[in-house]
């Protein structure tokens, strides 16, 4: 439950100065389309100094999320290991990386959606405003009431547009005029003008892009301070994608956003910070382990990455 202390040894210990990067010598660029090899180590041993945090990130005051050696195992097999990072408030943080690198898994730790998978177990810590989300006395339902989530495929409820928005506030027992709550949420998702005349129509009659913005509006209706987005545009056309990206820029005035994306250009366009994850195959082809490789301001990740693997990924050499 301790508040974040920027000088606490546990967080400082994970800092690696960019100059001391052993992989840089190790890396002649890998074969295109292949994950570059990671220096062999004992399986399950801590990654051999693969994390290249920017020092700036550790100076983040009052992060909304802070993870310490966060690991997720599925049925005893490691899926993501040793993620230590801080997610700042009122900014857009993007998680990028190849398939299976664990970026969605980490995102789902932030609102404890991994609890729904019985075989999943979470190690390490996730602090939300300094509160350990996985502490014994924290109820996952209470966590999700404060943190909104938008999924890869739009998943509106098979009900009226109005009912879709009203569900969250009703579940929370929010007081006040429900019509106003619905209108505010739809306006924040810039969907009000599209649907104000057909609030009673079934949400399944909307286009895919509208459905996804409805899901964003639905998440905003409960006034969360964080919005987690798990590849929100992967099922949408470029125009709908553009509208959602514009929307994210407006929303970050009031909400902290973490977005997982396959699309590097999208990360470059929308995010303030980017975390790059990788699939570590050093424990064998069957044991694909996700790891955080590099995390920092988006400009720097894309223009001056400190790790060769980041450089190869953002320049399109693999993934």
């Amino acid at each position: 439950m301790s508040a974040y202390d920027p000088r606490s040894p546990s967080t400082l210990g994970a800092v690696t100065e960019p100059e001391q990067t052993p992989e840089r010598q190790a890396g002649d660029p890998g074969v295109p389309g292949q994950v570059p090899p990671i220096p062999a180590g004992e399986p399950h041993a801590p990654a051999p100094a693969v994390v290249h945090h920017d020092v700036v990130d550790h100076a983040i005051e009052k992060p909304v999320f802070e993870t310490e050696d966060l690991s997720v195992h599925y049925g005893g097999k490691p899926a993501v290991l040793d993620v230590t990072m801080k997610v700042p408030q009122k900014e857009i943080t993007a998680f990028i990386g190849p398939s299976g690198c664990g970026k969605s898994t980490i995102l789902r730790c932030f609102d404890r959606m991994n609890d729904l998978i019985p075989a999943a177990s979470v190690g390490g810590r996730v602090l939300y405003h300094g509160i350990d989300l996985y502490a014994a006395d924290v109820d996952a339902v209470q966590v999700r009431k404060r943190i909104g989530m938008v999924f890869q495929k739009p998943n509106p409820f098979p009900k009226a547009i109005y009912e879709n928005i009203a569900f969250g506030p009703r579940v929370l027992g929010m007081k006040g005029n429900m019509d106003e709550i619905v209108e505010t949420a739809l306006r924040r998702a810039s969907l009000w003008d599209d649907v104000k005349d057909r609030l009673k129509d079934n949400a399944f009659g909307m286009s895919g892009g509208q459905q996804q913005r409805l899901c964003i509006a639905r998440a905003l209706a409960t006034n969360p301070d964080v919005l987690l987005m798990d590849e929100p545009c992967s099922a949408l056309d470029p125009i709908s994608t553009g509208r959602i990206e514009d929307l994210m820029h407006e929303l970050k005035e009031t909400v902290s956003i973490v977005i997982v994306t396959h699309n590097m250009q999208q990360a470059a366009r929308v995010s303030d910070r980017t975390a790059f994850f990788i699939v570590d195959l050093s424990a064998g082809e069957e044991n694909r382990i996700g790891r955080l490789v590099e995390y920092g301001p988006t400009d720097r990740i894309f223009t001056n990455p400190h790790d060769t693997r980041t450089e190869e990924y953002v320049s399109g050499k693999f993934g």
């Binding site: 729904l116 999700r144 999924f151 998943n155 509106p156 409820f157 899901c215 639905r218």
Partner: peptide, 18 residues
């Protein structure tokens, strides 16, 4: 009923029963 409907409801802070 697709699991995404249940996920959507749970992500909004609904209990399993809700």
């Amino acid at each position: 009923v697709p699991p995404s409907i249940k996920e959507g409801a749970l992500a909004l802070g609904a209990t399993q029963w809700q």
